[in-house]
Design a protein around this nucleic acid. Structure first.
Length: 473
DNA sequence: AGGTTTTTGAA
DNA sequence: TCAAAAACC
């Protein structure tokens, strides 16, 4: 009987540049590429996210078969699945990349009581504990974190691990298990080829205009790589390496700045991963205590209208419908939708955080929580609470022709640009010309922005004042 | 990674 | 009188 090693696949669904696979196949007589379908995945993950993972695994299975292996699937909980394998196979060695979310850490702690886990890195480029202030404490402000982060070198292509061209065999007589059927996404095909092609296309071209175009909702200015990074169809190292190549090839300061802006976004990903790692309580409430007791409104109908994309604010509704339909939302859209829920509707950001996790194909607890707390003004390095987006001005600025609105809110697409942004301003007689009736073809505003703005400034300032009063008393 | 109101200073 | 800048939220 030889030595069996398990590559426990989590968010590293790839063969290339995979430190965990690389470690697991060394000195292995048998290698099991294992995915454990944990109850949390099937019950709690957004359907589109679950489908993305399952489709990516099916694609990985095809690649593994080309190498004479195949994907082995088990039902969770993880510890039971591993116990069963160990009973069947005898001694096993377990390799799984270190993951940093509270759920993953607790699970790995439980499992490691029974099976020691070899824990290569790879989810981030720098370990959350690798970037600390000189006094040893974690950063809570992005800019100094970023400066420290960039002090270490960015990897080069030579640092990336090639996909193996052979793998140790599977043990005899092992049941492969079965992946549930997944619905394929037309917007995010979950294959390795698609991931590589998106990265290459973006690194060759779009990255050079990223800074200039990234906020335009009507253009394809972003990489749309988030789900592929989320589940490791490409590695974060590959992403940085490709960006760094483009950076070194660029001729002008302007071009370098465009590229650097994209790299900074990847550093935000590392930053929020580190924040959740060091401050797991952010999952339960405001990072900044003085905003823990904001008097949020309990307004289920307003929440529902926001979720359905029927707030009567076309830009917000377009964002929310894009999310529901594709499982993805533009980053600026996320900020605007979040500002609207928290500042215009004065609904607890945790409602929005949950809705995004229930719908996003790229939903990641660290990035999602960080983004929501930033938007709500309750987080580390957050937007100041008085920074309240005006949903109309944002639309006019970042969707100047109203094309994005027209696509996702088609009931407005026959209106002139001005009225796509402000359908309430159209004269009923003129509306008739376009076969449009405000209030029935498209909902009326569920809240007046100007009024809502004052309400929110008051609520935040009261929360802050009462916090400081309680502190003194 | 903003918006709104007030002030300023050049027509 | 108006647009840009500054101040404030």
């Amino acid at each position: 009987m030889g030595h069996t090693q398990i590559w426990w696949i989590r968010r590293d669904i790839r063969l290339q540049d995979n430190q965990t696979l690389d470690a697991a196949r060394q000195n292995a007589d048998f290698l099991i590429p294992l995915f454990i379908i944990e109850p949390e995945l099937m019950q709690q993950a957004a359907p589109k996210r679950r489908d993305f993972i399952l489709a990516a695994l099916a694609d990985l299975d095809r690649q593994l078969r080309d190498l004479g292996s195949r994907l082995i699937v088990r039902q969770g909980p993880a510890q039971q699945a591993l116990q069963a394998l160990s009973t069947q196979l005898g001694e096993i060695s377990l390799f799984a990349h270190e993951d940093y979310s509270p759920f993953a850490r607790q699970r790995d702690l439980n499992v490691s009581q029974f099976f020691p886990i070899h824990h290569p890195e790879g989810v981030t480029l720098r370990h959350p504990s690798a970037i600390l202030k000189d006094d040893g404490n974690p950063y809570t402000v992005f800019t100094p974190y970023k400066n420290k982060w960039y002090e270490s070198p960015i990897p080069t292509p030579a640092d990336c691990l090639p996909a193996p061209n052979s793998l140790p065999p599977l043990p005899q007589g092992l049941d492969a298990g079965q992946l549930p059927e997944a619905q394929a996404s037309e917007h995010f095909p979950a294959t390795s080829d698609e991931a590589q092609s998106r990265l290459q296309t973006f690194a060759d071209d779009g990255i050079q205009r990223y800074q200039s175009l990234r906020d335009r909702m009507d253009l394809d200015g972003t990489s749309r790589l988030s789900p592929y990074l989320r589940f490791g169809l490409i590695s974060i190292r590959e992403a940085f390496v490709e960006a760094q190549i483009a950076y070194h090839q660029s001729k002008t300061t302007k071009q370098r700045s465009e590229i650097r802006t994209w790299m900074d976004e990847l550093v935000w990903r590392e930053f929020y991963t580190a924040i959740l790692y060091h401050f797991p309580n952010v999952m339960r409430g405001a990072f900044r205590e003085k905003y823990q007791n904001i008097q949020w409104r309990n307004a289920p109908d307003d929440l529902q209208a926001w979720q359905d994309g029927k707030t009567g604010y076309p830009f917000v509704d377009a964002c929310m419908r894009q999310l529901a339909h594709t499982g993805w939302m533009h980053n600026r859209g996320r900020m605007i939708a979040a500002s609207f829920l928290t500042k215009d509707l004065l609904i607890n950001w945790q409602e929005g955080e949950a809705w995004f996790m229930a719908n996003l194909v790229d939903g990641d607890p660290a990035a999602n929580n960080g983004g929501w707390q930033w938007s709500a003004g309750t987080g580390t390095d957050a937007a100041p609470y008085f920074r309240i987006f005006n949903p109309v001005l944002q639309g006019q600025k970042y969707d100047p022709e109203g094309d994005y609105i027209a696509h996702w809110v088609p009931e407005l697409k026959h209106l002139p640009v001005k009225f796509r942004h402000e359908p309430w301003k159209i004269d009923p007689a003129e509306a008739k010309k376009y076969g449009f009736k405000y209030g029935s073809d498209y909902p009326k505003q569920i809240v007046d922005h100007k009024f809502a703005r004052q309400r929110t400034l008051k609520a935040y300032s009261e929360a802050k004042d009462s916090f400081f009063e309680n502190q003194e008393g």
